[in-house]
Design a protein around this nucleic acid. Structure first.
Lengths: 363, 363
DNA sequence: AGTTGTTTTTAGATTGATCTAAAACTAGCC
DNA sequence: GGCTAGTTTTAGATCAATCTAAAAACAACT
């Protein structure tokens, strides 16, 4: 390919200008050019400039594949989420992308659709591509041993949002426990006594933490009413669960939802029943997605900051890659209760409505 | 690394079992093993089995980086979107992922945030990683020459949803023109005469196509009322635009929105004004995102099938990679008008409302 | 057995960077 | 000028695969 090195033909196989070519052009060795590229302090200022001029002149393109073969960094990362169509994950991926971009890293993305088999296939492919690390939102049913396996494969692995492995692991997520407690405190302060919790997959850490927050809060405030409905976490589930609850007796006066999708569903369900969210029943969501401020009524939500979680997870992965044997870290962001209209804090009619409901059931 | 080849130590640097090792174990040459891996018909059945047994026994991992260096396929693709937090793009990326996964390809994802500079940086990085192709939703303000540049770089480039280049190019998207015409026809059939169009960035192909559909449809149906509001395309924009329109005289009796987010905003704006979407003003969205069926009222929407577009775009890219000189293709999916409650088709009160409005203004 | 024609297999070069260890320069000093 | 110490530069091996062209194995014919 090099033999036809006519001086001006940079249109087709521009792609194959190599270190050797630069070296020849600048009158130095291949090794020197390599050092310049990697900004080594070893090379003298004069040669550095000379080489950089040649690099420009020949419009050289760094071949990361070749570099990765000899070196042991690919500057690539794998990202696994289980539902990329969910705007929460979209925001998280945007955060990951921004943080990696700053450091010259680039990421493969896979959507596991919560299938451990799909997840496994992707991870094996990542291994073939020798990524430096993995950001993993583990699919439901992921074997806890997977994290160790990944480490043995020589990839840094940061679990995000959910975790499945045994304690010393890298993790980035939100403090869901604390978030639910804040929401509970707020509702109790508003005078609610019958508070239900809607949704959650199964025994995931992220679900457990929320449920634990709910249960401990009930205990702490000595509330006897307890209603915890498990389900998948779509808008549709929200509709169905609220309808079920409202058919029971006594009905709850407030519900906290696993995420905002469920909360939107719950509000819609209330409307279908002719009830007013925030008046007849308070609704609090989790995540504070953009739509929360624009729904009717606007949704009170436990903000979990997906973009920031993505950034933190990416940064942690880069730290682990730089120092594989360092102590494992857990980055847990504090949530913030974003108060809006759906929990009725702003409505004067609420108290009366609550009193009404309460009268029908409890002493 | 090979020197300490103790027979049983497969825990740490398992990662470095190489073709050479397999060859030694199976008693054949490196070349033969390579042929087996690539499922070449040249190798005899017996040796093939023998080699495959050795591959299993040593738990070999294919090194795609090394293969890419010598060969000329990396089995990787770059995907550029401008807003991954938008569920529409989430669904599209899920479609891409599914289609690539089937063919053993894997994709780098970048979020350009509609910045041509960010987009450019990512594409240069992709070039360094020598991806086989790019799926590009061009950022606003992308230089039309970019597509040729990418082709000169030796990457297949498929534009998705928007296109900026001169005619012979690869593209996958929806027929937005046709979608808007369908919506217009439907509204006219319901008796609407004053139909506005809400939203659209600037001179993107995807926006132009919609506006053209709107304008030509007005002409075709000989409707004198024309109101086309440009804006970014968030829920908030929908609120603002509908409020502006409803303050004018005459007011529209129906609006078609650039996407579902704008439509949700428009419905919310109507409610804030004390009006009922689908009764006082019909609202039609575009995309048919999952939430459309669950809003209040449920939203009539021009379904554009993002998942399918993603799949088609990925498949087209793979075709182009297999045959770089083949004729360029445009895959344009037909939209389908998903009729629900927000355009009032189901409400008996609509006609009266329309008559009412019409009386106030026209002959 | 020798020739021909397939079918299999292989040695050795190649891809484009990095690494190691040594060589080639400097400058400073006796 | 010779010697040391420090700074720059470089040759050559290396990473793990693929490719090319030729060799080896085998079968089928005279």
């Amino acid at each position: 390919m090099r033999q036809n090195a006519s001086p001006r033909q940079d249109q087709r196989d521009t792609a194959s200008v190599t270190l050797q070519d630069i070296a020849a052009h600048a009158g130095v060795s291949r090794s020197t050019v390599s050092l310049v590229l990697r900004e080594s302090p070893l090379v003298a200022e004069r040669t550095r400039l000379k080489v950089q001029r040649s690099i420009k002149a020949l419009s050289y393109v760094y071949n990361r594949g070749a570099a990765a073969l000899r070196g042991n960094r690919t500057s690539t990362l794998g990202v696994v989420v289980y539902d990329i169509a969910n705007p929460f994950f979209g925001a998280m991926v945007a955060g990951i992308d921004a943080a990696l971009n700053r450091e010259g890293y680039v990421s493969f993305l896979a959507n596991s659709e919560d299938s451990p088999a799909r997840q496994q296939r992707f991870l094996e492919r990542m291994r073939e591509h020798s990524v430096d690390g993995i950001l993993l939102c583990p699919a439901e049913g992921t074997d806890p041993g997977l994290i160790d396996t990944l480490n043995n494969w020589g990839m840094a692995c940061v679990q995000v949002l959910r975790h499945v492995a045994e304690p010393p692991f890298d993790y980035a997520g939100a403090n869901f426990y604390q978030g639910v407690c804040q929401a509970m405190d707020h509702l109790v302060r508003l005078g609610h006594h019958r508070i239900a919790f809607l949704g959650g997959h199964s025994e995931h850490s992220a679900t457990c933490e929320r449920w634990q927050g709910y249960r401990e809060s009930l205990e702490h405030h000595q509330l006897p009413y307890q209603r915890l409905l498990r389900s998948t976490v779509t808008r549709r589930d929200g509709v169905e669960m609220i309808m079920q609850l409202m058919a029971e007796s006594p009905t709850p006066t407030a519900v906290i939802c696993h995420n905002d999708m469920v909360a939107f569903g719950a509000m819609l369900g209330l409307k279908r029943l002719g009830l007013v969210p925030g008046v007849d029943c308070a609704v609090i969501g989790t995540d504070d997605v953009e739509e929360a401020s624009l729904s009717d009524p606007s949704l009170t939500s436990i903000a979990t900051h997906p973009y920031a979680i993505g950034e933190e997870a990416a940064r942690l992965a880069l730290r682990r890659i730089a120092n594989p044997e360092g102590a494992r870290e857990q980055v847990v962001l504090a949530p913030r209760l974003q108060i809006r209209d759906s929990c009725g804090a702003a409505r004067p009619t609420l108290d009366a409505t609550l009193a009404n409901h309460a009268a029908g059931t409890h002493a």
